[in-house]
Design a binder for these strands. Structure first.
Lengths: 346, 346
DNA sequence: CTGTTAGCGCTTTCAC
DNA sequence: GTGAAAGCGCTAACAG
């Protein structure tokens, strides 16, 4: 690509192209948009001139005429986290492939999620929107169902409503790592630190844990199911409880990595060694899982893929090629670190 | 705010308002845009009707007429990092205050930065752009200088060119933490693990280190200045080198947190204790700095503020209120963790 | 103060 | 195949 100043010199309009090609603007429009009904010859001529003039269509004008924005929106939740970047990247990638742009709005002190969404939907600013929200309020549900533009929700519990959703397959991820602990490491005494009780991810992860135990003939033990809150401090507290038990577990499944790190801290403070004295596994595969020592064994969540799939589904709906409501579950994988150790048969 | 279905029902146009108010569309436009020259009475009437009709201006139409997009762009670099989210949040916050929207484009396998930028600037899509790039190629410089729309660069070395920049005050951050190590903890033997030699941040951090030593009458020691590359592995290697020296330093200043974590790993592996046997400090204050134990003492970088300031400067330029080229340095702060210990006088 | 009117650049009928 | 012309919804002179 050659970069030169002309690119910015007041991009040519179809009118100018029409003049040079000695045709009408209608023909230019047709040629440029590949609408057929244009003689090959004139079309080539027009395309050449357009190229020469470094023509770029004026997006606002096209939008006005077509009543279509070629923009989708992404509403950021209020919560913090390192993963938005990746989600945005995924969305943007797909949007690029569809020649769409992505507008990002956030919710913050001066504005709540509802307002963000509404502001988006009104004014014919965008053609579709991706929402990332921990839970759907009634108000938001109303907005969505009244909305004229397609909506895809990331990580909402798919409450069988008519909205497309994309979410992590927490159940599968949880099941497979617990199963892995049993089958591969021969762990039998597996504790879990749960997430917030009102959090859907946390709930599904717990269910996966229970199912894996059951399928392996292991009886769950109440003492080994501790409440947590997805924070480091919460992990520490829960871990302390577990270490103070008379019958300690052999391994702790923290239902997110941040809590697993809390466990690391407490276990070290107790003068114990991971994985020799006790194993730890997490869920999420946040970047620091690979930075701590020993490396954390955890469930990998393909974050960028979530964004990309959400966008893909949104475009299916925008383009009218969707064939029913999607509730996509993104599968996870296992990252094998050094925080677990094969147990001798006993 | 009351949410109801009407919001989405084909937003009214100024024409409809004009009909109901029995005035011309021009008057409606004036009233809506607060342009004066409208009798208070009619204005109130118009505003009422607009409210009633849930009027929302059609953005595309306004853009076309005003030749102004009310959108700014943000170009994501190819590099990874947890901080984009915060930067975007900062930008979006400021944009919201100015009633602007933010479009995000990324650079990835299918598209390089140059292409992203060009695509942005052409087509009158946006009114200004914020670029986040590690270094300015000649090509990009050309594009920027030819550009008709304002550009603000985040984290570029401000090469005295005419472009506004916002960057971290690496020198000050580095100087102050090293100074803090000396003044507060009485460290005298301070090693540094440098960043990549072609990285401007790394260079400035090194200079801050040197200056702080000098101002405290401490002579730098070649053995204690080790090359690094901002990766965890690089931190490990450098730390190993330092621990193998006959004359070991008392504390290691890793010029970013990730390398500091590499040090943690090696120091633990050597059976040494932080901060009893050796201290460690970092730079960046990434989220895991607070999750490891002992908590890392490091330099805090206010990331969201960077985005917000970049946007603020961009709007100054868009609105024509800028008074010369800005090269803003964002000051850092010190996060006191537990990875350092006061040294006894010796 | 208010109305008329000419665009902004593009798409899209409807004739020819 | 191609052109003329009517908008899309809004802004901004220009009259009055």
């Amino acid at each position: 690509m050659t970069v030169n100043v002309y690119i910015f010199s007041m991009s040519a309009t179809i009118k100018e192209i029409a003049e040079q090609a000695k045709v009408s603007i209608a023909t230019v429009s047709r040629a440029l948009n590949n609408l057929g009904n244009v003689k090959e010859e004139t079309k080539k001529l027009i395309l050449n001139i357009a190229e020469e003039l470094k023509y770029n269509s004026n997006i606002a004008a096209r939008r006005l005429a077509k009543q279509q924005a070629k923009i989708i929106g992404f509403v950021l939740p209020e919560i913090e986290g390192e993963f938005f970047t990746d989600i945005i990247k995924g969305i943007e990638k797909e949007a690029y492939a569809q020649s769409y742009h992505v507008i990002v709005v956030g919710s913050h002190s001066e504005r709540n999620i509802v307002e963000s969404i509404l502001n988006f939907m009104k004014r014919s600013l965008i053609d579709g929107v991706i929402l990332m929200i921990p839970s759907l309020s009634e108000q938001i549900k109303d907005i969505i169902s009244a909305s004229k533009i397609p909506v895809v929700i990331i990580n909402g519990k798919n409450e069988a409503n008519a909205v497309d959703t994309v979410s992590i397959d927490n159940y599968q991820g949880s099941y497979s790592i617990v199963n892995f602990l049993i089958k591969n490491y021969h762990y039998k005494k597996i504790a879990i630190i749960e997430g917030p009780s009102n959090n859907n991810d946390a709930l599904e992860r717990f269910e996966g844990y229970m199912a894996a135990l059951k399928d392996n003939g292991i009886k769950p033990k109440d003492d080994w199911m501790i409440d947590g809150d997805f924070t480091s401090k919460g992990g520490e507290l829960a871990c302390s409880r577990l270490l103070s038990l008379l019958k300690k577990p052999e391994v702790i499944f923290a239902s997110n990595d941040v809590m697993a790190l809390g466990c690391y801290k407490v276990i070290n403070a107790h003068g114990l060694k991971i994985p020799d004295n006790i194993g730890v596994v997490g869920f999420d595969h946040i970047s620091l899982a690979d930075l701590v020592s020993p490396h954390l064994t955890t469930v990998h969540v393909p974050i960028e893929e979530i964004g990309q799939e959400a966008a893909r589904i949104l475009f299916e709906r925008i383009n009218g090629t969707a064939k029913g409501v999607s509730h996509l579950k993104i599968s996870t994988g296992i990252i094998v670190g050094d925080s677990c150790k094969i147990q001798e048969a006993n």
